[in-house]
Simulated assay, not measured.
Amino acid sequence: MQLNVGLIGFGMAGQVLHAPLISSVVGLRLTKVYARRKEQQHILRAKYPDVNIVTDVQDIFNDKQVDLVVIATSNDVHFSLCKAALLAGKHVVVEKPFTNTLEEANELIAIAKSQGKLLSVFHSARWHSDYLTVKDVIASGELGRLVTMEIRYDRFRNYLRPNAWREDDLPGSGIWFDLGAHLIDQTLQLFGKPQALFASLRKMREGVGAVDDFEVLLYYPQIKVSLKGSMLVKEPTPRFALYGTEGAFVKPGVDPQEAALREGKTPADLPNWGEEPEEIWGILNTTAEEPNNRRKIRSQKGNYPGYYENVRDAILGKAELAVTAEQARDVIYLLQLAERSWDEKRVLSVD
């Protein structure tokens, strides 16, 4: 069975991520795209000639042939568009972060349940090569008892982009909601909910309106997790650093999938899609006997298409949904709790 997909939003997320990924998954057919700008429409006609371009979202909501609506817009309209799509009887995928508030997330979850429709959030970092590799290293037990994990998501842009909503002082803007959402989701998948957190959410660049530097500590009974990100990191830092009673694992480099998509490549074009070069494989250093005490660990392949394959299978009743709205709601809760921690300058318990 083929599922027809309507895509709302054809900016960076829609163009670079969602449209090519949807088109690469067997059983999904990109049929309608909401795009108002002329330049976006030109790209659509060139790359997706069979897609119907619309300038009114109601054309997607009212189309009985559309099974799944994907929302790839700015954060401020995630809630309203999700609500409208669900009430129109559509399954929905929305870009992360899910919503700007916990209350909005809870309302959407209730609507999805009452409508009997799937609702998922694009937490694509679960399909990153580095994260998949870290999961394997932890599961191997070679680190002994894990005591500390640090995850970083850094960029370098020492100027402000004009007309960029993510850099304005708006709900859900800034890199804490943008990049921090990925790091929280990964941590929750590895360890579950923490007991408490402490946050530093700063604005470091001249004139910036939104958070562009964060450090958040998540406290577990035996593990300390540090989440960090900044827009002013010129020299690359390890993406993951794990320390245990029997050793350490340090993983540099960035999952290659988004870069490939930005270059116009798709999973259908590359047989080695998601495969990292050896120079950014992680180093495992343990108390094992030589020569196995310090060695490179081949990275797992990243697999962005796996997200949409799972959504397809969940709609068809062939699989459990991997990224549930309830899981995404937990991310929103911790994003907001970190803001409160920074405002109050104290450690807060996680209820």
Results as ranks from 00 to 15, higher is better:
Met1Gly: 10
Met12Arg: 13
Ala19Ile: 01
Leu28Met: 03
Val33Asp: 07
Arg36Gln: 12
Tyr48Lys: 09
Val57Glu: 08
Gln58Arg: 10
Ile60Gly: 05
Phe61Arg: 07
Phe61Leu: 10
Val70Lys: 01
Leu87Met: 15
Lys90Glu: 00
Lys90Arg: 14
Val94Cys: 12
Asn100Trp: 00
Glu103Tyr: 11
Ala105Thr: 07
Gln115Ser: 14
Val121Ser: 01
Ser129Gln: 04
Gly144Pro: 09
Val147Ile: 15
Met149Asn: 01
Glu150Asp: 14
Ile151Tyr: 00
Tyr153Leu: 11
Leu160Val: 08
Arg166Trp: 12
Arg166Asp: 15
Glu167Ala: 07
Glu167Ile: 11
Leu170His: 01
Pro171Met: 04
Thr187Gly: 12
Gln195Thr: 02
Ala199Leu: 10
Ser200Gln: 15
Gly207Glu: 13
Leu227Tyr: 06
Val233Ser: 11
Lys234Cys: 07
Pro236Ala: 12
Pro238Trp: 03
Thr245Lys: 11
Phe249Arg: 00
Pro252Asp: 09
Gln257Phe: 09
Ala259Asn: 11
Ala260Leu: 10
Arg262Met: 15
Thr266Asn: 10
Pro267Arg: 13
Asn272Pro: 01
Trp281Phe: 15
Trp281Pro: 05
Thr287Trp: 05
Glu290Gly: 08
Arg294Ala: 14
Arg295Glu: 07
Arg295Thr: 00
Ile297Met: 07
Lys301Trp: 05
Gly306Asn: 14
Tyr308Glu: 12
Asn310Asp: 10
Asp313Ile: 08
Leu316Ala: 11
Gly317Trp: 04
Lys318Thr: 08
Ala322Thr: 00
Val323Gly: 00
Ala325Ser: 13
Glu326Ser: 11
Gln327Val: 01
Val331Thr: 15
Leu334Tyr: 07
Arg340Asp: 06
Lys345Asp: 14
Arg346Ser: 09
